[in-house]
Simulated assay, not measured.
Amino acid sequence: TRIAVMKFKNPPVNSLSLEFLTEFVISLEKLENDKSIRGVILTSERPGIFSAGLDLMEMYGRNPAHYAEYWKAVQELWLRLYLSNLTLISAINGASPAGGCLMALTCDYRIMADNPKYTIGLNESLLGIVAPFWLKDNYVNTIGHRAAERALQLGTLFPPAEALKVGLVDEVVPEDQVHSKARSVMAKWFTIPDHSRQLTKSMMRKATADNLIKQREADIQNFTSFISRDSIQKSLHVYLEKLKQKKG
């Protein structure tokens, strides 16, 4: 079929730990070097949660060198996905906040399960942190400046119908049809010659990606100094305690 399926498996909520990010990029690279593969479907092995996003434990109570290494891996994930020559389709079969939304935003096409419990969006502001400029650019390119500005400030998580309305996802389908729909959409994308589609994709995305590539080191330093602040560590502590209580 020339399609690979990458299923996220990092229990309990597919958070983007340093190990997950590293393995993911290696797996994607292997697929890109495999001439028999033209497209990849990104999905979760565990229906109900696509990915809860960045692993807060990587950003809390660690040293600056660790924060820098972690942020570089987050940048790398986004760049590799955003600039991939493969056709990427996300089959969003669960909740997709923050880093989950980041992965979906890099794809060429997004299909979401029609379940009002599942939401998608960049909710960083609710945790007292800020989405990086390059992810903001990706969001603006997807849903437009005004919608992105409002959603980023409020940390909005959109249920499927609203995500479709703002253009954050391309299609909403019954939960049991997410994967079959992803395959049929992929078949449509495969009717386009790879070289012309890839050059077009690169032309559309290069400026946004270059914006990060030019400022990678500065972005890592900004993140490291921001996340190391006492006030930010305190707000992460409060949030993590809330999560513990929920589990308890």
Rank of each mutant, 00 (worst) to 15 (best):
I3S: 11
I3K: 13
P11D: 14
P12F: 15
P12R: 14
N14Y: 08
L16S: 04
L18R: 06
I26C: 02
S27C: 06
I37K: 07
R38E: 12
V40Y: 03
S44F: 06
G48Q: 00
S51Y: 12
A52M: 14
L54Y: 14
E58G: 03
G61C: 08
R62A: 14
R62Y: 10
P64Q: 07
H66T: 12
Y67I: 11
A73I: 04
E76Q: 01
L86W: 04
L86R: 06
L88S: 04
I92N: 02
G94D: 02
G99R: 00
G99I: 01
G100I: 01
G100D: 09
T106K: 10
Y109F: 15
Y118C: 10
I120H: 08
N123V: 10
L127W: 13
I129Q: 00
W134I: 03
L135F: 04
L135E: 08
L135T: 01
D137G: 00
H145Q: 14
A147R: 11
G155L: 12
G155H: 09
T156V: 15
L157S: 11
F158V: 05
F158C: 00
P159W: 09
P160R: 09
A161P: 00
L164W: 15
K165G: 09
V166N: 02
V172L: 11
Q177G: 03
K181V: 06
R183Y: 07
V185N: 05
M186A: 04
A187T: 10
W189M: 12
F190V: 07
T191L: 13
H195F: 12
S202C: 10
M204R: 15
R205E: 07
K214A: 08
E217V: 04
S225E: 15
D230N: 06
S231K: 00
I232D: 08
K234E: 05
H237T: 02
L240C: 05
E241V: 10
E241Q: 12
K242E: 14
K246L: 14
K247P: 04
